[in-house]
Simulated scan of single mutants.
Amino acid sequence: MAPSRAYIHPETDEISLPRVLFALSEPLRLAMVQKLAADGEVDSIDLGPDLPRSTLTHHTSLLRESGVAFVRAEGRKCLISLRRDDLNARFPGVLDSVLAGAQE
């Protein structure tokens, strides 16, 4: 049996505001984060069903590396969720403010 994929995530205290804001500044990634906020944990395919796999991987990796999203493997699926608690611990209200501003 093949080993499960392991993803590296920054620790909560390593999440930086510039990286979070950069990750949220791109419209496609912001739309992905909005879907995660609305739906909870989703399969990565559901974040961009019409995107090429390489584009989807690039954007979800950037969300993971910035500390915005948590990624875990489950079988052949790649499940993604928001790190809302970690982001609120580091930067209270920032995620909610960005999401509220994106609704306008």
Rank of each mutant, 00 (worst) to 15 (best):
S81D: 05
D13E: 15
S66G: 05
L30A: 07
L63D: 04
R83W: 02
Q34I: 11
L79M: 15
L36V: 08
R5F: 05
D50W: 06
L87G: 04
I8C: 08
R76E: 13
A38S: 14
L30S: 07
R90W: 00
A23S: 09
T55D: 12
L62V: 14
L99W: 08
S4Y: 03
T57A: 14
F70R: 13
F70C: 09
R53G: 01
G48C: 06
D96H: 04
S16G: 10
A38Q: 15
D43I: 02
L95M: 11
E11R: 14
A38F: 05
I8N: 09
G93E: 05
L62T: 13
T55P: 00
A73I: 01
P18H: 07
Q34H: 01
G93D: 03
E11Q: 14
M32W: 02
L63K: 04
E26C: 02
T57Y: 08
L21S: 09
V94T: 13
F91W: 08
L99H: 09
S61G: 15
V94A: 10
T60N: 06
K77S: 15
L28W: 02
P27G: 06
S81M: 02
R29H: 12
F91C: 12
G93C: 03
T57I: 12
S4F: 04
P3R: 13
S4H: 06
D86H: 09
F91E: 12
V20T: 09
V33I: 05
G48R: 04
P18I: 07
S4G: 08
H58M: 13
S44C: 10
R72C: 01
N88R: 05
A6K: 14
R83F: 03
L87W: 02
S61Y: 05
L87S: 06
L56F: 00
